[in-house]
Amino acid sequence: MNPLLTVSGLTRMYGNRVGCRDVSFELWPGGVMGIVGESGSGKSTLLSCLSARLEPTAGRVLYDTREDGPVDIYAMGEPRRRMLMRTDWGIVHQNPRDGLRMGVSAGANVGERLMAVGARHYGEIRAQADDWLRKVEIDGERIDDLPLTFSGGMLQRLQIARNLVTHPRLVFMDEPTGGLDVSVQARLLDLLRRLVTDLGLAAIIVTHDLAVARLLAHRLMVMRRGEVVETGLTDQVLDDPHHPYTQLLVSSVLQP
């Protein structure tokens, strides 16, 4: 078995400024990697580079494709990359409005990926959309409603359904619980954890919230000034931090 994602020497510069530098790791099928660090530490830059949305200055990202095994995602052509992004991958944005079509119904939002890969039976598309709405705990009666009428938590769950409908193997999440109330956050985290486990999804989750990381991630990478300063099993990193920066990060959470 190959790692799903093999990252080596990944660097992204903005002029002379470092976005992220020399990041290497492997992600195995079903693995959940958390990327933590304060804002400006390079988490989001790294996530964009990993998810084929921002070309790195140096380094490689290999993805284990279903057809041809490991392929450099920046060396494959754009058609293939687009296909990957809408079938085998999911991207959950912090602001669900960035990942949804706000002008079309919830059902169409979920069904779009199916139609994009060739589904042409209205009844079947609708049935699958209905099924997925229920999986993310959205009332099936809302299937024809516009997302504009949804609450923040519902929007985020709709975005998740939209991503999962094509049964991706890898999901990228950027602060998936950011901007939500604490009680709504808890419900969403619970749902995410269940989906990830049930579906055997691999995921890369960027968050500044260590509680989110502890709940979802198997492994953690701690980033500071664009570089990974510590990496390891989640419990290990959080309970026994080695790097001074990680210690500061952990202690700053424990002492409000």
Binding site: R101, G107, R113, M115, R126
Partner: peptide, 17 residues
């Protein structure tokens, strides 16, 4: 890229509504 899937979203919406 013959990336036309979204075109069917409009037709889907019509039928749904």
């Amino acid at each position: 890229l013959a990336d036309y899937g979204a075109m069917h979203v409009k037709l889907y919406e019509d039928i749904a509504r």
